[in-house]
C-alpha cells in the first residue's frame, strides 16, 4: 500500500509538471493579451508532430527537437496572431474574451483537420532507445523519460521567470499587463508586446508538445483534452503567477493520480473538473493569483 501510494504520488508530480508547462503558454497569452486561446491544445499537438517528424525522418533525439518545435510554434504563433488575433485585440475587454474564444474554437477545428491531412488519424509516438530505462530509489520507480520531462518543464519555468523579471523586454511585457496605457507612454510598442507574448505562449505549447509525444502519444483529436487541462491548471494556479501555474499543474497531476489510486482511474478527469469548479466557487482568483486591483 505505502509503496503504491508513494509511487503514485511521484507519477502524479511528474505528470503534473507536464500539465504545468502546458498551462504556462496559455496563461502567458491570456495574462498579457486577455485572449483566451482555446486552440492551445492544437498548438501543443503541432509541437508534438514537429518532434515526431524530426525524430522519425531525421532521427533526432526527441529532447533535442525542443528548440526546433519551439521555433516552429513561435513562428506559427506569430502568424496566427498577425492574421487573426490582432483583429480581436482591439475590442473592449469583455467582448475580447468572448470573441477570441469563438475565433480560437474555429481555429482549433481548422488545425485539427490540417493535422488529419498531414499525419492521418493514426496515433503517433516517439520511442528513443532509452524509452524503457528507469531508476529505482526508495522502492519508487523513476522512468528516465518522465524525469527528463520534469527537468525540461522546470527549466522552462525558471527561464520564463528570469526572462520576465530581468530583461528589458520582460519588464515591458509586465508593464503592459499592469497598465497598457502607461506602458505606451513609456515608449513601449504594446502591439509588439502582444505579438511577442502570443508567440512565446505558442512556443511554450511547442515545448509541451514534444514532451507529450515522448511521454504519451498524439493524434489530431487530442487538442481539446489538453486545452481543458491547461484551462483547469491556469484557473487553479491563478493569473499573473507563472510559478503558481506550475504548482497548479502539480496539484492537478497529483489529484488525478490519487483519484485513480483510491477510487478508479475512470474518474481521474472528473476529479480535475471538480477541482476546477471548487476553485471557481471558493477562490476565483486562483490559489496563487492576486485579485485585480
Amino acid at each position: 500500500m505505502f509503496e503504491g501510494l508513494s509511487q503514485n504520488l511521484v507519477f502524479g508530480i511528474l505528470v503534473g509538471s507536464l500539465y504545468g508547462l502546458a498551462a504556462m503558454g496559455l496563461s502567458m497569452i491570456f495574462g498579457v493579451t486577455k485572449l483566451l486561446n482555446v486552440a492551445h491544445g492544437e498548438l501543443i499537438m503541432f509541437g508534438g508532430y514537429a518532434c515526431f517528424w524530426a525524430f522519425s525522418l531525421l532521427d533526432i533525439d526527441p529532447f533535442l527537437t525542443i528548440p526546433l518545435a519551439m521555433l516552429a510554434l513561435f513562428l506559427i504563433g506569430a502568424v496566427l496572431y498577425s492574421l487573426i488575433f490582432s483583429r480581436t485585440i482591439k475590442l473592449p475587454d469583455e467582448s475580447k474574451v468572448k470573441n477570441s474564444l469563438l475565433v480560437a474554437f474555429g481555429l482549433s477545428v481548422i488545425l485539427q483537420n490540417l493535422a488529419l491531412r498531414f499525419w492521418t488519424a493514426d496515433e503517433r509516438g516517439v520511442t528513443p532507445a532509452y524509452y524503457q530505462t528507469s531508476f529505482t530509489a526508495l522502492e519508487v520507480r523513476f522512468p528516465l523519460v518522465r524525469l527528463a520531462s520534469f527537468a525540461v518543464a522546470l527549466i522552462f519555468l525558471i527561464a520564463l521567470r528570469l526572462f520576465l523579471k530581468n530583461t528589458y523586454t520582460g519588464k515591458a511585457i509586465r508593464a503592459t499587463v499592469q497598465n497598457w496605457e502607461a506602458a505606451s507612454l513609456m515608449g513601449i510598442d504594446i502591439h509588439k508586446v502582444y505579438l511577442l507574448s502570443f508567440s512565446i505562449g505558442a512556443a511554450l505549447a511547442g515545448v509541451a508538445g514534444t514532451l507529450v509525444v515522448t511521454n504519451y502519444s498524439i493524434q489530431p483529436a487530442m487538442g481539446l483534452g489538453w486545452t481543458m487541462k491547461a484551462l483547469i491548471v491556469m484557473v487553479l494556479g491563478g493569473l499573473g503567477s507563472i510559478p503558481g501555474t506550475f504548482i497548479g499543474g502539480l496539484i492537478l497531476g497529483v489529484t488525478e493520480s490519487a483519484t485513480s489510486f483510491f477510487i478508479n482511474s475512470n474518474y481521474r478527469e472528473v476529479a480535475g473538473l471538480i477541482l476546477f469548479v471548487l476553485v471557481l466557487i471558493f477562490r476565483p482568483q486562483g490559489l496563487f493569483g492576486t485579485k485585480e486591483s
Binding site: 508593464a175 497598465n179 502607461a182
Partner: peptide, 11 residues
Amino acid sequence: VPESGKIFTGM
C-alpha cells in the same frame, strides 16, 4: 506624466 501618475505598482 499621466493623471494620477499611473506608476507600475507591482514593480
